[in-house]
Computed example of a mutant assay.
Amino acid sequence: MATFHFENKRALVTGAGKGIGRDVVIALVAAGATVTAVSRTEADLTLLKQQFPAIRTVCVNIADAAQVQAALQNVGPIDLLVNCAGVAMNEPFLSTTLERFDATLDTNVRAAFVVSQLVARGMVERKTGGSIVNVSSVASTLALVDHTSYCVSKGALDQLTRMMALELGPHKIRTNSVNPTVVMTEMGRANWSDPAKAGPVLARIPLGKFPEVPHVVNAILYFLSDASDMINGTFLPIDGGLLID
């Protein structure tokens, strides 16, 4: 893990209960930040709080805009935001239901919009600037079989990143996106352990492997840090070269 310093910085991370989001919380705490961890699963937050008593936890259904606004309205000043909450409901185009399509966009796009708007308003009012990172995917660029809702949601999230970078930039608020391919989280390993499934994808990656969680976390921390203070509206593929062709 790369070394970053976030003393006197206040961070909010959505999707903090598992996977990449959880590791982002841990890394930010280790780097000195004061962290608010947001998840819809109370048990995950309880475990995180037991391990890191200094963090603040907020349990809320991130896809419910009204709940999110109520839960976070008094969250306090935030300097750093990571929109990591996401779902993947993989179905063929002709089998995708409106309910699953809407649920995917509510979590992957609308939640990022709602949380970012709330946090950015505070940044603008305080005139302190800040950094926001949206966790997207190479699926924003690639059309993947059986991933209609997911691909559409990540494409929309990238466009949201562009708009935020454009309109928040004058307020010294930077917005960037990390766009990994399959990441070897616990779920990633479970879903991609079959060589018959993983082989064709790995064959398209020049480095011949999927990224591990620290690869994504390091990129997120870089975008949050002052080391990237001239980077705004950027999309960083973390894919071993998958998008080259």
Rank of each mutant, 00 (worst) to 15 (best):
D44F: 09
T128H: 08
T34C: 05
A2C: 02
D79H: 09
V29S: 00
P206E: 02
H147G: 04
A66E: 09
T107M: 03
A11S: 04
N61S: 14
R204Y: 08
L72F: 10
A37R: 08
A85G: 08
P206Y: 09
C151N: 14
D79M: 14
I244A: 15
V152R: 07
D102T: 14
E167W: 00
G169W: 01
D64S: 11
T34Y: 00
E125I: 11
I55M: 01
P170R: 07
G86L: 11
M230C: 07
P92W: 14
A139S: 15
S136D: 09
A198T: 07
L243C: 01
L202D: 05
D239Q: 15
R10W: 02
G188L: 14
M184P: 02
D158V: 13
E99M: 02
G241S: 11
C59V: 15
N179S: 14
I205C: 03
A156L: 13
V183L: 14
F210V: 12
A165N: 03
S153K: 11
V119T: 06
L12G: 04
A111W: 01
A30C: 04
E212Y: 06
T34N: 01
T181P: 11
A66S: 06
V60W: 01
P206Q: 04
G21A: 01
S39F: 00
F52R: 09
T57R: 02
R40T: 14
I173Q: 12
V145Q: 12
N218G: 08
I244P: 05
A227L: 14
G76V: 06
F4W: 12
E7I: 12
T104A: 08
L98C: 05
E125Q: 10
A37W: 00
D146K: 07
L221M: 06
G122M: 03
M123K: 08
P206W: 12
P214V: 12
I62W: 03
V119D: 05
D239P: 11
C151P: 03
G76D: 03
S131V: 08
G130E: 10
L105W: 00
F113A: 15
V109W: 01
A196S: 08
V216Y: 03
T3C: 05
S225C: 13
E186A: 15
I231L: 09
V109P: 08
P211K: 07
D229M: 02
A27S: 10
S131C: 13
W192G: 03
V68F: 13
I244D: 13
I62H: 00
R204V: 05
I244V: 15
L80S: 07
R40D: 14
V213Y: 03
V178R: 05
T128L: 12
D226P: 04
P77N: 08
L142Y: 07
D79A: 11
V178A: 14
G76L: 01
N108W: 02
V35R: 06
W192L: 03
A165M: 08
S131T: 12
P170A: 04
I26K: 02
R22W: 05
G208C: 05
V87M: 06
G169S: 09
A71Y: 00
T128D: 10
F4A: 10
P77E: 15
E42W: 09
W192I: 06
V152Y: 09
G130V: 14
S131W: 07
Q117M: 07
G199W: 00
V87S: 10
L28G: 05
G130H: 06
L142S: 09
L242A: 03
V119F: 07
I78K: 01
V178T: 14
